[in-house]
Design a protein around this nucleic acid. Structure first.
Lengths: 351, 351
DNA sequence: ATTGCTTCCGAAACCGATTACATCCATGAG
DNA sequence: CTCATGGATGTAATCGGTTTCGGAAGCAAT
């Protein structure tokens, strides 16, 4: 019924199985790990006992013996962000499927904690570390952090979602350029030409890339670039976007569509627009990135770019496990974003 | 700089420290665990070496030796729910502060996975298990699950957020009655008398209690109870609440306020009301439970009952750790909810 | 100096697995 | 009929700590 003999005092060990089967512990271990041939008659007998007692070898003892913890550390900025939560879930599933355990640590945006937890994961002897959020997503590498990561990587492979120049971290990230292409194509096709880009900080890699791509696309389409449409120094939360949008409108900047850097920002933008009597999408279209459940909550529902979290998380984890198990893994992989059209974007009527 | 000698091949062991300090490994262990007196002179010397090499005892070896993993399992329904995410963060912090590691598992609402993960946590030899969501929150206990939990509890204490009759699980939960009191008091004070209760299923303990308390409060105030105002068989998501609310309105049920079972439901309700031209709170007030960040996103911002997640998570973890360390812990503890007033509730004008 | 207590500390057992090495046996080749 | 060969298995070392046990050292009182 239940794993191990729980009601007894001491749990079953490999020795108990060995004794009852009339073999040595080594042989039991061999069938447990399938590491060597065992006469099929004995093998069956041993297996029967393992099943009978639902014997599970002690993780610690095993780990100590073969120096493998079968554990992967996940360093996350803040799991309360639905974006990270979705990725974690995918990682967790992938890990479990491969026989690993994922250990989650949140540093809550604090750089000191970020470093501390990274060390701590390493000390716990996780076999690989996946990090999303924090200094691995910044445009410029933090020297101190690079040094730390490099020391850790001497023994433990790391997979990150951004970049960290000066390290050999494996990277699995979203193709931000393409993410911008998708939204711009969508909006341009609807006839929009004055498109604002609100939220985010350009010292974050993905945000910077979107900004660059935004300019490039305009140029490719022969459209003018108006710096007023792309305020920097925002953030990724509702309030900041609300404020930024207010400033834009108060400055008299005209636009027919807004690209929000994420769904939170979009919510702030929508709030601001509605308060001022704008209709969405009739007067102004709003689109965003992340495709979290907020998109369904918004009125109207929000057109957003989905980052395919399941696939993303699985790629992160598969990469980590691949590195652990010595498989060849490409050092940079891209996740393809996809557009999810909803009611917040529509034809531009101001042309 | 960095924990352990990372760049070297082999990490430092207690033997290395012992040798360099000219003492036995046992003595080093004693200062490490502070388990016995060591002449202060030697102690200092040993401590200096520990600091110098940033030596961290191998977790697995230590765990194997003293049969303590210093790990606490957290079984969660789905961390993507911001409610659970906040609780997990609080648990994680409390665990870390006490020298434990929290291991998170999500069963995503699947009962089979729920049981499997519970067993798996036990097999991993976590020292205690905290569960939120799933069958521990149901009104009626699932027999099969009770049996499983009882076997696990023979060796591993469990702390849950609801109840599980037939087990000795420790309980830390929200005072649902009080949570209802708070909202009803708030609405009654504003003059509302026809108050709908939308969302949730009454086979969930907390929802059932709220429903019961709702009726009781009406009675205490001499107000009539109209079953039409309290549809059952809902859920905790946006869409279901949206549908339920639509049905209510189409059936011609009149009301001046709606209590949503959680913020998600509230969002569905608001959406429904707005689509039909109702103004909030002028025509109908909407209030809810959970006080997640959705409350700030809503237009108008949502009056909601906060469950004090930090305190809640910390209580859960402190209880778990207390049980592990053999302290006396009361078997049922209640978390006090608090009201957060925002713009979605206002004076009843229909009197 | 002897006795009696503590206090301090080292040797060795132990936690529960994996695995290197040695041994044994069976089999097919010569 | 022997010998080489290789598969199956057991013995024992090992992983890196903690902990029991008992001896040695320190100190006060006699």
């Amino acid at each position: 019924m239940l794993s191990q003999k729980i009601s007894d005092g001491k749990p079953i060990t490999i020795y108990d199985i060995a004794k009852e089967a009339g073999v040595s512990p080594a042989t039991v271990s061999r069938v447990l790990t399938n590491s060597a041939n065992v006469r099929s008659e004995k093998k069956k007998k041993i297996q029967a006992l393992i099943d009978k007692y639902e014997f599970k070898p002690n993780t610690l003892a095993r780990g100590l013996a073969d120096t493998k913890t079968r554990t992967i550390g996940i360093l996350s900025a803040d799991i309360r962000n639905p974006y990270y939560a979705s990725m974690f879930i995918a990682c967790e599933q992938a890990a479990r499927a491969a026989g690993y355990t994922a250990v989650l640590c949140n540093f809550l945006g604090e750089q000191e904690t970020e470093a501390k937890l990274l060390k701590s994961l390493h000390d716990q002897k996780v076999e690989a570390i996946i990090q999303f959020g924090g200094r691995v997503d910044d445009l410029a590498s933090d020297e101190e952090y690079v040094e730390l990561v490099n020391r850790i990587m001497a023994t433990t492979p790391m997979v990150i979602t951004g970049k960290l120049d000066g390290t050999r971290c494996h990277v699995v990230r979203i193709d931000s350029m393409q993410a911008m292409d998708i939204l711009m194509e969508h909006l341009l096709a609807l006839g929009h030409e004055r498109i604002a880009l609100v939220g985010g900080r350009r010292d974050v890699l993905s945000t910077f890339e979107k900004y660059q791509r935004y300019k490039q696309i305009l140029k490719e389409h022969g459209l003018p670039f108006d710096p007023q449409l792309v305020p920097d120094g925002g953030s990724y939360d509702v309030d900041t976007a609300y404020r930024q949008m207010s400033e834009l409108l108060e400055a008299g900047v005209r636009m027919t569509a807004v690209i929000a850097i994420n769904d939170f920002s979009a919510m702030g933008i929508i709030k601001c627009l509605k308060e001022r009597g704008y209709r969405i999408p009739e007067d102004i279209s709003v689109v965003s990135y992340d495709n979290t459940y907020m998109t369904e909550i918004a009125i109207p529902p929000l057109t957003s770019v989905d980052y395919n979290y399941e696939e993303y998380g699985k790629m992160l984890m598969d990469t980590a496990i691949g590195l652990i198990e010595g498989r060849k893994v490409s050092s940079v992989q891209m996740v393809r974003p996809t557009l999810v059209e909803r009611g917040s974007s529509g034809i531009c009527k101001h042309v």
